[in-house]
Design a protein around this nucleic acid. Structure first.
Lengths: 230, 230
DNA sequence: AAGTGGTCTAGACCACCGC
DNA sequence: CGGTGGTCTAGACCACTTG
């Protein structure tokens, strides 16, 4: 175990035991470095992890304070749908539903500013059963060669993730009552619960793609785990 | 803009432009340090961010490779429900529904091993309207003084988060059709979609609490953002 | 204005692991 | 075994921000 890990563990212990209660201002880096018998950089390395976990807050001049916990923060990982399905042991299937090219009228959200758009609907299947309905808009400004690509064999999900780097993603999760399109393709009754992931991807300031992924409710869950520092 | 930020941006550019395609082994730290005219530590600082974003993968002896992107990874933050409501400008309200003490029979999941349990149901309101139904089990082994606490004024959500440090959290998100309890308290029709967050919290290996938070579908969303390096 | 955290350096040594 | 990334040091200087 490295020095910074020991220091991090000890600081974690003090916070957990309320030895360092929420709101307390900690000793300076130099004081802690002296206490633990290490260089200042090693203390900084330990504290960096605690900052990332949201356990402490640091500000120049004001010092380092134990954060009052006001939220759980976790890492949420959404894998490529094909890998998600095969990882569960099921057979992966894919079907292109519709594909059309048009202008801003395809984009009800106004996320894209008057760009040429490619609109694709497709279905991902697990063991032949509908698993995820993918409704996607792709900016042909950001990804010009998408117009020439044949999405009947490879899903846009997979193709885009390999082709286009993104710099910022906005993800919204919600529960919805199935509309007609969702009910039809997911083979569920109208108004059944569906789990929806909306994602907007940008490259710098340019919108790249906007996707709505609908899952049959019972079949979908996301698991997150905080990275424990202990 | 600091040196490490410039370097990170330049490396990001090379990856984005496929100048450094996925799978490529990058030059060593020392070579990059020389190229950019900085110390090795500064290059490391830049690369740390890229590792965290999942854009590169590093292994001793094997070197640094551009990662082939296979998943989106985001930070998911679930705030205290009261803060979530007041942040939206609505008036926060809270109501204790039921509270009882019992044994393992209260725990259908088997998460708690034969501990004394406190079972609490409560409701969080936004502008007087039901917002979240909170159904919670608390281990009295982990939090003995919870039995003596009056939860009619302060929600267990808020009280626990201040009282008990946790070390690991498991979160599952899903869409459900409302059952009778959910329909009654959230004032929605049975089988309407509800957005459910299940959370299990442990302190080291000891289970602390298990909570099911149900939201009216239309009213709930979680937003995640990747920390952009650009 | 001063004290805090943040960046950066130049160097040493360590530890993992693929060749 | 050797080369890579990982840790650590002792120091300098910078920049933010609050008292």
């Amino acid at each position: 175990m490295h020095a910074y890990e020991k220091i991090r563990a000890e600081m974690l212990r003090r916070i957990a035991s309320q030895d360092w209660p929420a709101g307390l201002t900690l000793p300076h880096e130099e004081q802690l470095a002296e206490e633990f018998g290490v260089a200042r950089g090693t203390v900084r390395r330990a504290m960096a992890d605690l900052v990332e976990q949201g356990l402490i807050e640091r500000k120049r001049r004001a010092g380092t304070k134990v954060a009052s916990r006001s939220a759980h923060s976790s890492t949420l990982t959404i894998p490529i749908v094909r890998k998600e399905i095969t990882a569960s042991g099921a057979q992966y299937g894919y079907k292109l539903l519709t594909s059309e090219i048009g202008g801003a009228e395809l984009d009800p959200t106004g996320h894209f500013a008057r760009a040429q758009l490619l609109k694709i609907a497709s279905l991902h299947l697990a063991d032949g059963q509908p698993y995820q309905l993918e409704e996607r808009l792709i900016s042909l400004e950001a990804v010009p060669h998408a117009a020439d690509h044949d999405f009947s064999a490879i899903s846009p999900n997979e193709w885009l993730i390999e082709q286009v780097p993104y710099s910022a993603v906005r993800t919204v999760l919600r529960a919805e009552a199935a509309d007609e399109v969702q009910a039809l393709h997911l083979k569920i009754a109208r108004h059944s619960p569906v789990f929806v992931i909306d994602r907007q991807t940008r490259l710098d300031t340019m919108p790249v793609t906007l996707v709505k992924m609908s899952h049959r409710a019972a079949s979908f869950s996301i698991t997150t785990t905080t990275n424990s520092a202990g």
